[in-house]
Design a protein around this nucleic acid. Structure first.
Lengths: 290, 290
DNA sequence: GATAATATCTGACTAAAGTCAGATATCATG
DNA sequence: CATGATATCTGACTTTAGTCAGATATTATC
């Protein structure tokens, strides 16, 4: 009665019904679901036709016709892509934006209703984050980004907040050796953010020094995405970037209050070395030769 | 970036994609999705045509045609309902059972794959239970059942296990005044189980004594369904049953190690009274006049 | 600059889903 | 037992989704 497979299937059924309700609510605007989906994909910033087609898994003929029908309604305009005139980009017209925000309002109010109906808000949200991350794991992509960008700064903020929670003495960025952003940008270093459906859920920095030695910094994985192997993927990405930059030795410092991190390093070929800096927070130091 | 509505919507998107994958896997058996859904609904015990139609939200014409196509395939047989010859009941033939179990195997292996891909099994399952309960709340129905039935005994087992965990001194049913099952069956009393999509997720017993005083016993809500107001619904159902049975005074005992329970009682018109039995476990006693 | 590869579009389909107005048989009620 | 309500079925549709073989325009490659 309570075996894991049954529980997963009960979840699937519950969610299938809910998704069906969401879909039907989208039909209230006098447009087939397929067209509504394309409109929304474009509204959410997927401007290239091929990108939308892949995302929605549509046949190219069908995609083309759906685009035409939205164009006939006056909701979108298409034009050739600047770099490659075979590709087309679509954008919402003024009327399209209005229609898109009507769909947004529908989705939002449905989400709000769901939240309002339930008292366990935080527990529910945490559960949803976890499941969305687990389901979207294959869709999580690692992107090299500027550490000063919004996504990176969001991750770093969460990272600092977590350190402050987990270190007995708290954590103050200013006391730590905050890597200069320029050291985490090519050609000296790199910064990688894990994006899951538009939400940043992890990051790692590679802090170069111009020499053949570089440091791994700021490895963070959102609580909702832990246990899914994302830390390892991020570390692999950082190592790959280091190899591209001709770096021979990687170092990192960490703290024994973060046991998961130490475990990950030990399992992936890192060896403990003596302290190599005077940062007050770390008490464990690792090295890996590439 | 992290407002609750965005998080709910991210979950919705992740899940919509996953549900789509589940649906397409059902197409591998050479049958349109609609027919597959009807076959599975019947396989899961929804035998009456109208019941299946409501559950799947189908038009009666469409439903009828889907039934005919399954009949032509030799997968189901229909006959008139014993009590009302207008209604029809469908059941699987031998071939239908084979086909149904092929779909079951597909669903099971998909659920197993999902579990195998993830390391955080227990956390994921708990999150899924919570969400399934929250989504299925409107679909949770309270049914009066025999306390000796499978569902009731499952609930009671979980209830005892939880008491054992939460009482410092543990919990042994035999030391407690285990209500005789006959006292929780009409006409003396009642036993109500909350069923969510086939899974028992809560229960409550009304233990009558033949007099105008009865006791509430065994109020339990599955951890995955807490915070959704189910405890209150169960209590309301028990009270309603008590009124039907002509009971004037309800009593119950509980323990201060279960603060949620005490809070619920105080909020719903119960008043604390002196100890009225010598059961070793409870230390709080309540009464409510109907 | 010919050839292959790529991105999109068009035309001509088929299949599936959904709608709606009756038809038919049965049941409930006075 | 006539009347209205109910459950299902049939026929005649429309709409939506999906498929596939080319057509067209552009870009990449030798």
């Amino acid at each position: 009665m309570l075996d894991p497979v049954t529980r997963v299937r009960r979840f699937n059924r519950a969610v299938t019904r809910a998704v069906g309700a969401l879909d039907t609510s989208f039909l209230g605007r006098g447009r087939p679901l397929g067209a509504a989906r394309v409109l929304n994909a474009i509204g959410h910033g997927r401007s290239e036709v091929g990108e939308v087609r892949d995302y929605l898994g549509l046949d190219s003929g069908l995609m083309s016709r759906l685009l035409r029908s939205l164009e006939d309604e006056g909701l979108i305009e298409t034009s050739a892509h600047g770099d490659d005139a075979r590709r087309r980009v679509a954008k919402l017209t003024r009327a399209g934006k209005r229609e898109f925000s009507a769909y947004e309002a529908l989705s939002n109010s449905q989400a709000e209703d769901f939240l309002a109906r339930n008292t366990q808000r935080e527990a529910l949200l945490a559960a949803m984050d976890l499941i969305a991350s687990a389901l979207g794991r294959d869709a999580t992509d690692l992107r090299e980004m500027d550490p000063r960008g919004d996504e990176a700064r969001y991750c770093l903020g969460e990272y600092y907040a977590e350190l402050a929670r987990r270190f007995k003495q708290g954590f103050d960025v200013k006391l730590s050796r905050d890597p200069d952003a320029a050291d985490m940008v090519r050609p000296r270093g790199s910064f990688v953010v894990a994006m899951s459906d538009g939400l940043p859920i992890g990051c790692v920095g590679l802090k170069g020094s111009g020499s053949e030695i570089a440091e791994i910094k700021r490895l963070w994985v959102a609580p909702s995405a832990r246990g899914l192997g994302l830390g390892r993927r991020l570390m692999d990405a950082a190592e790959a970037a280091a190899r591209e930059l001709g770096i021979a030795v990687l170092r990192l410092d960490t703290n024994s209050a973060l046991p998961e991190a130490g475990q990950l390093y030990r399992r992936t070929g890192w060896t403990e070395i003596p302290r190599f800096n005077d940062d007050p927070y770390p008490d464990l130091f690792f090295e890996k030769r590439l």
